[in-house]
Design a protein around this nucleic acid. Structure first.
Length: 586
RNA sequence: GCGCCAGUAGCUCAGAUGGACAGAGCAUCGGAUUUCUAAUCCGAUGGUCGGGGGUUCGAGUCCCUCCUGGCGCGCCA
């Protein structure tokens, strides 16, 4: 038996009542109403009217009349049902609704907003996935922050999420790095500043390769040596990976991100050959000489292994093996997917990867299906972060280091906090929560798909629609509850919450479970961010208008204290789902 | 050339499945603090939703077309 939240029950009730009058209304047809319309829930009857050959206006009036005269409702005050311009407008019964919302929360305060949509099914989420030997830039931030939020959200929606950090620790770029290191590498410099130095080598490689075409060939050969297990290549590669991972771990620590598994591309190395053979044997893949145009750097006449996808409506085939026998990103991805399917038996695979890989993921999904795996693949895409002067490019050395952003954000927050009455250590901790929260919120509060032009002031906003605004609302709640002794009374009637500002706040809070579900279904964390922001706004308005601790009666005070607690639970949970922490004081 | 994404207030963005007069933040202007934290609240100014057609009782949302920007299109990841 599912526990439905108050708003769902109200919608169901409205739909049932309408169905009882002979109209095929579904729960989803009932809309939440907000703003100046004089209603809480509404049903447009235009379609039904058309099917019955009636005028919408008349039908709505007739329905409203019947409902008004019919039996009373549970959560709806049917006596106040009205019709207006083709809409059937419902009113909640404020007494019953307030009680229901409070009861929903009290049933299990720790699980407020949870649902069982996922039904315990497993979903593997591939996110963060930075490349070894490259600095962690703000570009990787999006995948990391969105992925972690989705992990939390899907968990709250009843899924069993498995996060997998698919480290870019294999591929041609390592050939380049090994080549560069063999030519110009200095052990002392590597020891002094591992990732910085590797990055400089990588940039230098690309600069010199413009002049010297031999370098590209040399790099490919180094990667080939790595793949066949050459000892020098192996040893150096292992060191590069270890040094980078240490660096990444430090950044995840700073961000407060913890990913369930970190299995790099190299982990799947021994599955690549068999995968290609199997694809060939099954007739899914075939050998083919690449078109002349793409030749040049490769030996003419040699064949690649590819999966043709024209029948799937994709003109570009997916190449599994280069003409020199080396593997590709796609080969490793397919092997990775098979491993994940075997190990975790997921009902869905999710990839938090940038927009630019849209075509690739269509190819990947089609190829996976051809290989006999029927699991749905979701590409959770997001827009590139770019600078006003152009896109970020590791090769061109045009990067913004995440660490610099963090330092700047925490620094700005620290300035605001400077004159607070608290210990220096508490100020540091607070600045960290606020600064990092601001960075994450800037990313998670807007829809994923859009390109982002990097702007310090916008990313690090500390007022308005920002993380600190939400954190502040929570802190005010905590402060009130602390002063009330943190011991909530339960002997009051939630129906006492009848001021306009608190009625609005209760309705807002009641929508939280919907917001979480919507975020989970669409893989869009910003739906939760938006809801939390609106909640904080409603709370702040209420806070300014209505006294809590100084309420006229003990019972009213208790009721309002519960509203404060519920607000904190809502915004606090929302922020936690987004991976943003909340301080005790600000 | 083909494909994907985007174009909403001066700036940055919300507007899921088409629904009631298009909403926020910032900026600008004007107010609020002997009372639970002013990182706050209240109010005002500000939009032919890129242009043009179409479908519909109803379009920011769907279809067509054009314009602008970004990205992608067999041996990078």
């Amino acid at each position: 038996m599912k526990n439905l939240y108050a708003l769902e029950r109200a919608r169901r009730e409205a739909a049932e009542r309408v169905r009882a009058l002979g109209l095929p209304a579904v729960e989803d047809d009932i809309r939440d109403v907000e703003g100046e319309v004089d209603a809480d829930l509404a049903l447009p009857v235009f379609r039904a009217a058309r099917e019955q050959g009636r005028k919408p206006f008349e039908l709505a009036v007739e329905l409203a009349d019947s409902l008004r005269q019919g039996p009373g409702g549970e959560l709806l005050d049917l006596s106040r049902t009205t019709a207006e311009r083709g809409y059937l407008n419902f009113r909640l019964d404020p007494v019953a609704f307030n009680r229901a919302v409070v009861a929903d929360y009290r049933r299990n305060p720790e699980a407020w907003g949870r649902s069982d949509e996922g039904d315990g099914r497993t979903v593997v989420i591939d996110y963060s996935s930075p490349n070894v030997a490259k600095p962690f830039s703000v570009g990787h931030l999006r995948s990391t922050v969105i992925g972690q939020a989705l992990h939390n959200i899907l968990d709250w929606c009843g899924w069993r999420p498995v996060g997998d950090n698919h480290l870019g620790d294999w591929g041609t770029q390592f050939g380049k790095l090994l080549c560069a290191f063999a030519r110009w590498g200095e052990e002392e410099e590597l020891a002094a500043d591992p990732t910085g130095y590797l990055f400089r080598l990588y940039v230098r490689f690309h600069e010199e390769a413009k002049q010297d075409s031999a370098l590209e060939r040399e790099a490919r050969d180094w990667f080939r040596r790595l793949e066949i297990g050459d000892e020098v290549a192996r040893e150096r590669w292992q060191r590069f990976v270890a040094l980078s991972r240490r660096e990444f771990d430090r950044i995840y620590e700073l961000l407060g991100v913890g990913i369930d598994y970190t299995l790099g591309e190299s982990f799947y190395e021994d599955r690549l050959g068999p995968l290609v053979e199997r694809a060939l044997a099954a007739g899914v893949a075939r050998r083919e000489a690449p078109p002349e145009a793409a030749g040049g750097e490769f030996e003419a006449g040699k064949e690649v292994v590819l999966i043709p996808l024209a029948e799937q409506g994709i003109e570009t085939p997916l190449i599994l093996q280069k003409s020199d026998g080396a593997s590709l990103y796609a080969t490793r991805e397919l092997a990775t997917a098979e491993y994940r399917l075997e190990r975790w038996k997921p009902a869905r695979l999710v990839y938090v990867v940038g927009n630019e890989q849209e075509l690739y993921f269509r190819q990947f999904g089609a190829a996976l299906k051809l290989l006999g795996h029927d699991v749905p693949v979701t590409h959770v895409n997001f827009g590139l972060i770019r600078l006003p002067e152009g896109r970020l490019s590791t090769r061109a050395g045009r990067v913004i280091l995440l660490e610099d952003v963090i330092r700047e954000a925490v620094g700005r927050a620290r300035t605001v906090v400077a004159d607070r009455e608290m210990t220096e250590a508490d100020k540091d901790e607070l600045a960290r929560l606020v600064g990092i929260g601001a960075i994450k919120y800037a990313d998670l509060s807007q829809s994923r798909g859009k390109e982002v032009v990097f702007d310090w002031d916008r990313m690090l906003a500390l007022d308005g629609d920002s993380a600190p605004y939400l954190q502040y609302a929570c802190v005010r709640c905590s402060s009130i509850l602390r002063k009330a002794g943190n011991r909530p009374r339960t002997d009051f009637d939630p129906a006492l919450l009848a001021q306009p500002e608190e009625a609005a706040l209760v309705r807002r809070l009641a929508r939280f479970p919907d917001a979480v579900r919507a975020a989970g279904r669409s893989f869009e964390p910003h739906r939760i961010a938006g809801h939390c922001y609106r909640t904080a706004r409603d709370f702040s308005a209420w806070y300014a208008a209505v006294p809590v601790l100084g309420a006229e009666s003990g019972e009213l005070r208790a009721a309002r204290l519960l509203l404060v607690e519920l607000t904190r639970a809502t915004i606090g949970t929302g922020l936690r789902l987004l991976g943003i922490g909340v301080p005790e004081r600000m």
